[in-house]
Design a protein around this nucleic acid. Structure first.
Length: 366
DNA sequence: AATACGTGGGT
DNA sequence: TACCCAAGTAT
């Protein structure tokens, strides 16, 4: 392969076709860092709005280090993988404490920050500091699985090693950041799962294209089984307020808020599960009064069907809840539910209630 | 090396 | 409907 020509074709295509992203005008390390963390396992189109809002709230590492974790999680609500948000905040504190608020430029130091792995360190070093280091993400792996026609699973060491060697050889000293971004942009816009080979700027260099093996590249690992679960959750309303609780740090969705509830056990109806879960989690007796809706959502390898009920206390006397499954909790005004970070399923339940006339009074009162 | 960690969009 | 999987990291 003519490496010089490959790189020139790619960069010319990138200059003409790259998307206009907020941090691309002036790629400083802080905006680039935030964009790279947000983009992990997340499509760029979704990142843009979060990034804009983030820069307004936390314009620099100092603002971020000072912000309460609650506020940072709320800013991250809906993006998922919430440890990313926690780690950004921890890293910001280190940047302020150890580096006087200046983002470090040494790749090894960048790599040592929480939440920054091999890929992200390379991306920041090359894009924000112009250092000739690779940044190999899923796009780059897919592109070179095709260009080199790699017939082993691309996430495994052998294939990865081939890709990295190739990237290092092609990486131009003068525009390493643009080169890395161009590979990713190509993977996102042209060399995607179903590639658009006719418009590809490097098809003349592509072995899989020449051999007709594009459809078989990259070689993927076997898919994992999906687990379907049914859950019940209840919005307990007492004196115009709703009960929420904050999830534990070692649990799924650490630090996010939710309505009490849980998985249906064998043979249980959603209502029965709800009554049981309320006893177990908060030691309250509740009566499911009305089905609100059913929310379907998924997380990692689970597909959840969540049955949602409006509940009232079973007895006139309502003792203080005991939070056995959460770090804290309490009754809050329905209107203030907007201020807490919820997992997407619970957020959608809240949105549903806010838009359903049956619950208009509840939300208006608060 | 394998698994957990969220979410939404595409085919 | 049922997958696939996206600018990955931590353990």
């Amino acid at each position: 392969m003519d490496g010089t020509r490959f790189t020139r074709n790619l960069l010319d295509w990138y200059d003409a076709n790259r998307r206009d992203l907020p941090w691309r005008d002036d790629p400083g390390p802080y905006p680039v860092w935030i964009s790279e963390i947000m983009a992990q396992q997340t499509q760029m189109d979704r990142v843009v709005e979060y990034h804009r809002r983030w820069m307004r709230h936390y314009p620099d590492p100092e603002a971020l280090a000072k912000a309460p974790e609650e506020a940072v999680l709320k800013s991250w609500e809906g993006l998922g993988y919430y440890n990313r948000a926690r780690n950004i905040r921890k890293a910001a504190a280190r940047i302020v404490d150890e580096f006087g608020g200046e983002f470090p430029s040494d790749p090894a130091v960048i790599r040592s920050l929480p939440g920054i792995g091999e890929y992200t360190a390379g991306a920041i070093a090359s894009i924000a500091f112009g250092q000739p280091v690779p940044a190999i993400d899923a796009n780059v792996l897919r592109v070179f699985a095709r260009v080199l026609d790699i017939d082993t699973p691309i996430r495994e060491k052998a294939g990865r090693g081939q890709v990295e060697a190739c990237v290092r050889e092609l990486l131009p000293e003068d525009r390493p950041g643009d080169f890395n971004q161009a590979l990713m942009e190509l993977g996102a816009l042209v060399c995607s799962r179903l590639p658009d080979c006719p418009v590809c700027p490097v098809k003349e260099h592509c072995l899989a294209h020449a051999r007709g093996t594009i459809g078989a590249r990259p070689v993927l690992p076997p898919g994992k089984d999906i687990i379907r679960i049914n859950m019940a959750t209840g919005v307990l309303v007492h004196e115009g307020q709703a009960l929420i609780q904050k999830r534990r740090p070692d649990d799924v969705w650490p630090g996010l808020w939710e309505f009490p509830g849980g998985c249906l056990e064998q043979g249980e109806t959603p209502e029965e599960a709800l009554v049981r879960e309320y006893r177990e989690e908060v030691e309250l007796d509740v009566v499911p009064e009305e089905k609100i809706t059913v929310v379907a959502y998924s997380y990692t390898r689970y597909r959840v069907t969540m049955h949602c009920y409006l509940c009232r206390p079973a007895n006139g006397d309502v003792p203080a809840p005991v939070f056995n499954a959460a770090v804290e909790g309490g009754f809050v005004q329905p209107a203030s539910l907007a201020d807490y970070a919820f997992p997407s399923g619970h957020r959608r339940l809240i949105d549903f209630m806010r838009n359903d006339l049956r619950f208009a009074e509840l939300f208006r009162l608060s």
